[in-house]
Design a protein around this nucleic acid. Structure first.
Length: 700
RNA sequence: GCACUCGUAGCUCAGUUGGAUAGAGCGUCUGACUUCGAAUCAGAAGGUCGCAGGUUCGAGCCCUGCCGGGUGCACCA
């Protein structure tokens, strides 16, 4: 029986870990050591320099712990350098002895057409992995990574698509932090846009309410139907209102004028409508932040568009763009009177078809223009700054700030990131590309790579999900693979509704399994399970996969789900709860002696050999890949890798748990090994889950 | 029309600079609870990796063409 090897991981060299704590070695360090040895051996033996040196996990545990396909690469290099043709297998044979000298390596085999397969000294590595772990160093002087996510229009409740954005962004933030990065999290608040204006039109012209009446309404709403839910419904009513009650009809120009009037009032600021809109937007932001808090998602700064306008960020950016010749004024053609950003790379049939308008002929700025200004600020290249005030203080000391226009004494350092990740759905990839190019044109030294569009596909509704929601579909919609959610049409699954449903489902399960828990503990546990289910569900898909939302799948706690992973971690905890401190201490002491006691080392090696031992060993090796999986997720900006890895680890542990009795094991050495392995898995699995934003309850 | 993206088991999806016998979950079928908690584990069935060429010692992955989904290409935000 062989443990799960399906999760295969490859390493990337990370210079910033190699310099730390030389006495605490991780699997990543060990791999690096082997690579260095191969590089120097290739240099000395064949006189060639290997550029990229990949490490693989062999497909089956019997083939070894690490595989280097370097001989194939070397054969090419040698041929290039000398013209001499060498057999990859022969090359591998000559490198073999160099690796066998290393302490942690027990033997090396050449396999297949020339793979160099390395087998580790299992007892020795168990000792290493079970020893003290290295914590991620916090380097405050490190360059800052900026991540913007969530950025929901503050005119309605968040739906499941918004949650995908927030969970992806938040998990990526956790990945960056786990990799040792300094990170600042922003949530952009478009409080002067059309969507807020629409809800304001609703309050003013449908509800005939003034600010005081809205406040009174807000105070009268209960938590089952809060302010953002009210706005959700009002927003869809406004959509119909514009179209004179016909959802598919055209906009009535007179009613559109109402929207434009509100919009102008918002942009101007300092009037009653703007004050009313500010209340509505701020209340929606509060509701959305509360929703995200339920999922463990937080921010450092809320950057408001109204402050970008009033602090004249755009005017500064406009000046910079003119100075650098990034935009030009068109005097003729169909863009006459506009400032445009020319694009030569596109080969449109029209001469200037692909030019992007930044300032319209009526002298207003496009969204892209404003975005370039904001992006310049994020990168510390605008030369202007916001003012700030505290938006919310959390009990644990975290502080959420919000921008403001009026000067203030408090002025923390925000912005000025070396890289900016914008978590925005893939439909925005064209405008995002223009922002990146515009910024790079203004500040050539930072280049386009400083602006990263962290794109993801939308969450859509499966036809089945629509039926469950009681949404009537047209024949055209029914033939589609999925139906896009629409805030304007009120078509979507509200985030809080789904979380409530998940919590209720989890509570039923918890009550079944742990009837003796207090009501509060049951609820708290159900909450953690619900968060695990939702976050994992949204993370297990890669970013460019459209999620066709399915209730059955999202509400499941079995199979490849968050609760499954949680459950495995809960089991590790319950083992230690039952073991007792002395037994654990004895196991620790035993494993610690392995390096100095030859007889003991042989016994431990014996436990880790054979089919059963190899399964245990494979689990241990898998657990040590967390560090490189984090690095890989950081480089690829793909949190799904971590989700898949975590599941593979939980799965592998579940099998181990099933195959071995840990507490009742009578053989002292064997028990020591099983306990040490369980302890290592508990640490790694709990850490991996924490990065996914999933907590491990005591029981579940 | 142009650009981007996807097409892998009945369904939903992984599959990393090309590398060893293409993997999970769900569903179906067969087993395992006098339990370190079955939200679990074991086993079986299930594949022309959209199609056709090409490059390579080697292609699910790279190149070309085609077919079929999706998204984006406004003086909207």
């Amino acid at each position: 029986m062989v443990a799960d090897r399906s999760y295969r991981s490859y390493t990337t060299y990370r210079p910033y870990t190699a310099i730390l704590c030389p006495f605490l070695m991780t699997l990543t360090d060990l791999q690096q050591k082997l690579r260095d040895r191969i590089r120097s051996a290739a240099r000395e033996t064949f006189g060639v320099e290997v550029q990229q040196l990949s490490v693989e996990a062999p497909p089956r545990a019997e083939l070894g712990d690490l595989a280097f396909p370097v001989s194939f690469e070397l054969a090419k290099l040698i041929k290039q350098a000398t013209g001499e043709k060498q057999n990859p297998r022969a090359i591998a044979e000559r490198l073999k002895s160099q690796l066998e000298d290393i302490d942690e390596v027990s033997r090396v085999e050449i396999a297949g057409a020339g793979y160099i397969n390395v087998f580790f000294d299992r007892a020795r590595l168990l000792n290493l992995f079970a020893g003290p772990t290295r914590s991620v160093p916090k380097q405050l002087d490190q360059p800052k990574q900026m991540v913007e996510h969530t950025s929901i229009n503050p005119n309605k409740a968040a739906h499941i698509g918004h949650v995908r954005n927030a969970v992806l962004g938040d998990t990526f933030v956790r990945i960056l932090k786990a990799a040792g990065d300094r990170v600042e999290v922003q949530n952009y608040i478009d409080n002067t846009g059309v969507q807020v204006a629409d809800v304001v039109v609703g309050f003013l012209h449908l509800e005939q309410m003034d600010l005081n009446q809205i406040k009174a309404l807000d105070a009268s709403l209960n938590k089952d139907y809060p302010f953002d839910y009210y706005c959700w419904d009002l927003y869809t009513r406004v959509g119909l209102f514009y179209r004179d009650g016909n959802a598919g009809g055209d906009m009535n120009p007179e009613k559109v004028k109402l929207r434009n009037d509100v919009l102008h009032a918002l942009e101007e600021g300092g009037n009653e409508i703007a004050e009313l809109a500010d209340y509505v937007a701020t209340r929606n932001v509060e509701c959305i932040i509360d929703t995200m808090e339920r999922l463990g998602i937080r921010y450092d700064l809320l950057a408001r568009e109204s402050d970008i306008l009033h602090l004249h960020f755009w005017e500064r950016a406009f000046q910079l763009m003119k100075d650098k010749g990034v935009i030009r004024y068109e005097t003729a053609g169909r863009h006459a009177g506009c400032w445009v950003m020319p694009f030569e790379s596109h080969t449109g049939t029209d001469e200037h078809e692909s030019d992007k308008i930044i300032v319209r002929s009526n002298r207003t700025v496009t969204y892209t223009g404003k975005d370039i200004a904001y992006q310049l600020w994020k990168l510390g290249k605008l030369g202007l700054d916001f003012n700030y005030k505290v938006f919310r203080d959390y009990p644990d000391g975290h502080v959420l700030w919000v921008t403001k226009t009026e000067p203030g004494t408090e002025r923390p350092q925000f912005g000025g990131g070396v890289t900016v990740y914008n978590v925005i759905d893939s439909r925005q990839s064209y405008p995002q590309e223009i922002v990146a190019r515009g910024v790079a044109a203004v500040v050539p030294e930072i280049g386009e790579d400083a602006s990263v569009h962290f794109s993801y596909e939308m969450v859509a509704l499966s036809p089945a999900a629509c039926e469950e929601l009681g949404i009537e579909l047209s024949d055209e919609d029914r033939s589609r693979p999925y139906i896009e959610m629409s805030g304007r049409k009120g078509l979507g699954v509200k985030a809080d509704d789904l979380i409530n449903q998940l919590e209720a489902g989890a509570l039923t399960e918890v009550e079944k399994r742990n009837p003796d828990l207090s009501e509060n503990d049951k609820k708290a546990t159900a909450h953690e399970v619900a968060v695990a289910a939702l976050r994992y569900f949204l993370l297990k898909f890669t970013r460019n996969t459209v999620i066709a939302f399915d209730f059955k799948e999202a509400l499941s706690f079995e199979g490849e789900t968050g609760p499954y992973c949680q459950y495995a971690a809960v089991r590790t905890n319950s083992i230690f709860r039952k073991l007792g401190n002395e037994t654990v201490a004895a196991a620790d002491a035993l494993i610690e002696q392995v390096v100095s006691d030859g007889a003991l080392q042989a016994r431990v090696a014996e436990v880790l050999s054979g089919d059963s031992g190899t399964e245990i060993w494979s689990l241990l090796m898998l657990s040590q890949q967390l560090e490189e999986v984090i690095a890989q997720c950081r480089n690829s900006a793909e949190p799904a890798n971590l989700a898949k890895y975590t599941f593979a680890l939980a799965r592998s542990f579940s099998r181990f748990y099933h195959d071995h009795r840990i507490i009742t094991e009578e053989d002292e050495v064997r028990r020591g090994v099983l306990i040490a392995v369980t302890k290592v898995i508990r640490t790694q699995l709990t850490n991996a889950l924490a990065i996914l934003g999933i907590n491990v309850p005591e029981q579940m």
